[in-house]
């Protein structure tokens, strides 16, 4: 790894901005994601900042199973994100479809539609688990070469 790549990697890891997208969740994982960002757990100390648009985000935090109506929108949001991009599936539903597996309007987990980098199980995933997942994802990126 040369110096330029090291600097790129360092800066990237210090500011992983996230976009939260509800793909048909029951709100439980969504409120836990917000709880992880607020003072008790404070995910922001790792440089994580909630962003409003996919073009600013590095990590897409998805919650919930993918419903048929949201599928195209999810793909579109994923395509709008700039490289390098990572998808984190929060909660059992987004990992596999969970209790909604087999429902007529459900496509399955997030990985049925877009590639996923990290899975955080739990119904809902607790803020501690979400923090753990995000930090583990960042650790795994440390070794990768920055483009």
């Amino acid at each position: 790894m040369n110096v330029v790549q090291k600097v790129i990697n360092w800066s990237r890891l210090k500011s992983p901005w996230v976009l939260h997208f509800n793909t048909g969740a029951c709100n439980a994982c969504d409120i836990e994601i917000i709880a992880a960002l607020t003072p008790r757990y404070d995910l922001e100390r790792f440089g994580v900042l909630l962003k409003a648009t996919p073009r600013h985000a590095d990590i897409l935090l998805c919650s919930g199973p993918v419903t048929r109506q949201i599928e195209d929108r999810l793909v579109r949001i994923y395509e709008q994100m700039a490289e390098p991009k990572f998808v984190v599936a929060v909660g059992t539903c987004s990992c596999s479809g969970g209790v909604f597996n087999g429902c007529y309007n459900i496509k399955g987990g997030i990985n049925a539609v877009i590639p996923v980098s990290a899975y955080i199980p739990g119904c809902p995933a607790s803020p501690k688990a979400i923090m753990d997942g995000v930090v583990k994802l960042l650790q795994s990126l440390e070794q990768k070469e920055g483009k």
């Binding site: 969740a25 029951c26 439980a28 969504d30 199973p65 419903t67 109506q69 949201i70 809902p124």
Partner: peptide, 29 residues
């Protein structure tokens, strides 16, 4: 309709005990 998962139909295919946990997931709040 972006959040429509078909819970009402899914309830008909599960037992009352299973439905209880499914119905909880209508809304997490």
């Amino acid at each position: 309709g972006y959040n429509h998962r078909g819970i009402e139909k899914a309830c008909e295919e599960r037992t009352y005990i299973q439905d209880m946990y499914l119905i909880e997931r209508v809304c997490g709040i």
